[in-house]
């Protein structure tokens, strides 16, 4: 119910109106959310606790997904890494979307020098490939979650700004908005009644893509060991750590890869447009 609302469809027949692809994405994302947040309730293990007598164990009742090279519980670690990725995705998407949409509406509505300044700022942020900017910010504060977050949000807001600005410019010139304005409605009503219903689907698609790229960026930096530091359970970092033990524990190696792949897949499916 809540999720179908989030997709901008009416809650009653929201599910039926979704495409198969989006349904699949929603189910997959729901499953991953459940694994991430229910695991600490159902399986009480510290993701950082080492047990050097029990390294690289196969899945057992005590450790349902086995243990890693330091005897840490893989289920707890994978769930913790999923939570971290989803936190980062939610945080960076929200803090990129809100200013992006606000500034986009203002720039598209008012135009003038403010529009030009904001457009220039967006171009400046796009001058470097996103990951490079995040990498440089990560270098300033190594291993810091917030440095990564600032970098990712700084890259993501531009997309919202550009799309919202372009769409707003068209909508502001439309006769229905003109009519509402002549009737004396204020900007708040005009936004709710005319702009947001048009913008919402695009913004939600951008949000799903943005979440996927935030997750991928963090994992990529973790993978090349310039992101978060051990012993944090982070998907990219876990892959690097477990790679040398591929022969002894392929199931352990497979978990972060599978978790990342499914997470990104579910978000991509949610963002997918109908194909002709």
């Amino acid at each position: 119910m809540k999720l179908s609302l989030a997709l901008g469809a009416a809650p009653a027949d929201g599910w039926r109106r979704l495409s198969t692809r989006r349904r699949l994405g929603l189910v997959l994302l729901g499953l991953l959310l459940a694994v991430a947040w229910l695991t600490p309730w159902l399986h009480d293990a510290d993701p950082a606790r080492q047990q050097l007598t029990r390294i690289l164990e196969s899945p057992t009742l005590a450790a349902p997904l086995g243990t890693d090279h330091l005897g840490r519980d893989m289920l707890a670690r994978t769930a913790a890494a999923l939570r971290l990725s989803l936190d980062m995705a939610l945080l960076s998407v929200v803090s990129a979307a809100v200013p992006g949409i606000l500034l986009g509406v203002i720039a598209g509505w008012r135009g003038g020098w403010g529009d030009r300044v904001l457009g220039g700022l967006a171009d400046a942020c796009l001058a470097l490939p996103g990951l490079l900017l995040v990498l440089l910010l990560a270098a300033i504060a190594p291993g810091n979650f917030w440095a990564l977050y600032v970098g990712i949000a700084l890259v993501l807001w531009i997309e919202y700004f550009r799309v919202v600005r372009a769409r707003t410019r068209v909508l502001v010139a439309s006769p229905q908005l003109e009519a509402s304005r002549l009737l004396g409605f204020g900007p708040g009503y005009l936004f709710r009644r005319h702009l947001w219903p048009e913008l919402a689907p695009q913004v939600l698609t951008l949000a799903a893509f943005g979440a996927a790229s935030a997750i991928l960026a963090m994992a990529a930096l973790g993978f090349v060991s310039v992101g978060l530091r051990p012993p944090t359970a982070e998907l990219g970092l876990m892959m690097t750590e477990l790679l040398p033990y591929y022969h002894e524990a392929p199931w352990a190696m497979a978990q972060p890869i599978l978790a990342l792949c499914l997470l990104v897949l579910s978000l991509n499916l949610l963002a997918a447009k109908e194909t002709k």
């Binding site: 892959m239 790679l243 890869i257 990342l260 990104v264 897949l265």
Partner: peptide, 14 residues
């Protein structure tokens, strides 16, 4: 769709 969900480093690893 599958390839897009696999980041380059995971793909390279596989």
């Amino acid at each position: 769709s599958l390839l897009r969900a696999l980041p380059p480093f995971a793909l390279g690893l596989l």
